[in-house]
Design a protein around this nucleic acid. Structure first.
Lengths: 213, 213
DNA sequence: AGAGTTCTGGACCGTTCTGTCAGGAACCGT
DNA sequence: ACGGTTCCTGACAGAACGGTCCAGAACTCT
């Protein structure tokens, strides 16, 4: 009973997320949020509470999706683990350019902007980073099991390096580095992995076929 | 003649730079700036003009110092070029932790926050990135000349990868990754370089002596 | 010392911000 | 149709914002 809401909460959260990713926390006003979400200030406060609460909510939704997306990229059988690591790098390179407007990763934005309003937000972001790192580590270990990566190599160290490369490519992309250079970076990073002789064809610089997704 | 200024412009710029690095552009108010610089709003506007003008000025000063600092790390004779690349990575890892308060790189902050107020600022940032990349490329080529890096390797690609790793380590550091993990990332990245057999001792995981700076 | 000049700090203005509120519109169940 | 409930819109208050201005302090030169 009563008048039903004229908006879909999840849709609003998603639209607001885009706004936050575009302008950051401090750079986004409540009016911007309301306009992006297509509702009035009153409805917004009634439905989501504070600006920081809404930010936390969008951040959590983003982290959920992001973790799942990377997990989907990285999960799979051992024999294609190395391909998946390559896909991870290629997708990292394309991440920004795939977005129509150049919104960045919300996690990176949170970290660099230094949004300290919420201890919960920091915890959520750390969790997201740890989970992605976990997916990476598993994938690296799978490639090691399959004999594509040196079994002696430091899997967590490689994962963290891959994390760093991902974040770094985003910065370079937002700074204007073009798409082909980014893909070259991705390939270069891939070649820097401790590939076994078995995984590294003699003369071909592209050791693994990349999916054209 | 007349009353001399009670502040040193350069000192103020430096202090304000720290403030911008801490809170970003949108997150820093003119009052914050005045307090950080130790002068009143009137003096501030008289000496520097707009908030965005002052930001541009601090950004330029920061870029100057940053370019010079990296150039100093990377310039030198061919026979120590590989060591210098290692130093670049190690210093990247320590960058954030060396700062007492966790201020980040102003260039990264500018790029991620998406400060679009000034076309000049964007140009300056791009120039800074290109110059650092140039220093890196020269150093890589020096290491190639000396036979420490594979002569067939793609020097610009490696440089851009090293740039990305640098930026990425900053993000991870600000997200809370501890110092030892960061140094492991740096070492991992170094081992990913296309080292020649001559540069890669058989069993030692640390191929080059790192200065303890 | 006094005149002229420059700098300083805080008051001030108009705008924008966050967060609240009330009156009216829209809807459901009966 | 109609009461009860929920939602929406626009207005509102208080604070913070960017930017300006001026009266007085501080200094140099004569």
């Amino acid at each position: 009973m009563g008048r039903p809401p004229g908006f879909d909460k999840d849709k609003v959260v998603q639209a607001v997320e885009r706004q936050f990713r575009r302008s950051g926390y401090a750079g986004t006003s409540v009016d911007d949020i309301a306009k992006a979400g297509g509702l009035g200030r009153g409805s917004l406060y009634a439905a989501f509470g504070d600006k920081s609460k809404l930010y936390l909510r969008t951040l959590e939704a983003y982290c959920d999706r992001n973790e799942a997306a990377w997990a989907a990229v990285l999960e799979g059988p051992d024999d294609t683990a190395l391909e998946r690591l390559h896909a991870y790098l290629v997708k990292s390179a394309r991440f920004v350019h795939d977005d129509p407007d150049g919104l960045g990763c919300m996690v990176t934005g949170f970290v660099i902007e230094g949004v300290d309003h919420d201890p919960q937000a920091s915890a959520r972001v750390r969790q997201a980073l740890m989970r992605i790192e976990g997916s990476l580590t598993e994938c690296v270990q799978a490639a090691q099991r399959h004999g594509d990566l040196d079994a002696e190599a430091d899997a967590p160290g490689i994962s963290q390096l891959l994390m760093a490369i991902n974040r770094g490519m985003e910065v370079l992309a937002k700074a204007g580095l073009d798409a082909v250079a980014l893909e070259r970076v991705a390939d270069q990073a891939f070649e820097g992995l401790p590939l076994t002789a078995r995984a590294r064809p003699q003369q071909a610089p592209r050791p693994v076929v990349s999916d054209a997704s």
